[in-house]
Design a protein around this nucleic acid. Structure first.
Lengths: 156, 156
DNA sequence: CACCGAAGAGAACAATTGTTCTATTTATTG
DNA sequence: CAATAAATAGAACAATTGTTCTCTTCGGTG
């Protein structure tokens, strides 16, 4: 007699759950230990904390993806300027890179800020902060002004 | 005959794992669904994605906690100025708030940046960005300049 | 008491960014 | 072809921020 599909699905899920949680939550593991620490400090159950952190991380990840999608919708010039801005270049440095005037850089920055409905370069850096544009710049922009330093951020 | 402690501990963990994963990973839940989406898009197993997101979220959370601890180590004036800075006030607005000159604000900003080894107010906003200082400012700073708008960020 | 360091205050100068406006080029459409 | 919108370029002016320096007050110490 075969198990009913619902029961079989339940057993499969149980097994996956075990494997997953064993991987994530084991106390010898980094995550498990950190969660224990947090649980102790915040006086909340580990699974509740993990759920919150995970939900928050997912929301953040999705926002970052959305912002990257919008970055892709910029004009080529705007992409260049904003990528360099995110690498912390001043407008003068960006101008040198792209062989245009600083005023023009300001125009492009202005346009990018408007498209993202932001107030400043700083805010732009904030919303695109999870992306590491150095590889993109290296591949797409001919520029000696950029000191390329790889970070742990995601590559767009 | 009592079960050996190791076996008993293992069973307890298995049970917790089941409960935890069932709570987090169920496909009808928001998190479960988001993870399925991500798994499909990134072509990676859900548990691997979840582990990465969780590890990243924990690191981020710890960094935020550390930055808050360092904020608490600032002088009273520095705390005020940086809290207001994080609420996006200009130096002139902060000066009005605290009834000092903008030059003095700049000095305090300067000192805060040095203590955090940052380059700009924008960077300060970035590292303290997960904290919502509006309640703190409301409770500790007498200031009409601040438009208090609550956000979803953590309260320091 | 004098001295010292930390904290708070402020000014002058410089750098960077933001805002408004103008002009040219390019691609698309009727 | 002319007209239009979008993209790119740039300048003048204003606002904001960053940097260096100086001064005063306060609390702690010898």
């Amino acid at each position: 007699m075969k198990p009913r599909p619902a029961l079989w699905a339940y057993l499969r899920r149980a097994l996956r759950s075990l494997i997953f949680a064993n991987r994530i939550m084991r106390p010898e593991g980094e995550i498990g230990r950190a969660l224990q620490d947090l649980a102790r400090r915040e006086m909340r159950p580990e699974d509740e904390i993990a759920a919150d952190l995970l939900a928050n991380a997912i929301a953040r990840h999705q926002a970052a993806q959305d912002n990257l999608r919008r970055w892709h919708e910029l004009t080529p010039r705007e992409q260049e300027v904003s990528a360099l801005a995110c690498l912390n270049l001043t407008n003068v440095q960006i101008a040198k890179c792209l062989m245009i005037s600083p005023e023009t850089v300001k125009t492009h920055v202005r346009n990018v800020l408007a498209k993202f409905n932001l107030r400043s370069k700083g805010e732009l850096r904030q919303i695109l902060g999870d992306w590491d544009f150095s590889a993109w710049v290296e591949a797409n922009v001919t520029c000696k002004e950029v000191e390329v330093s790889r970070s742990e951020e995601m590559t767009p």
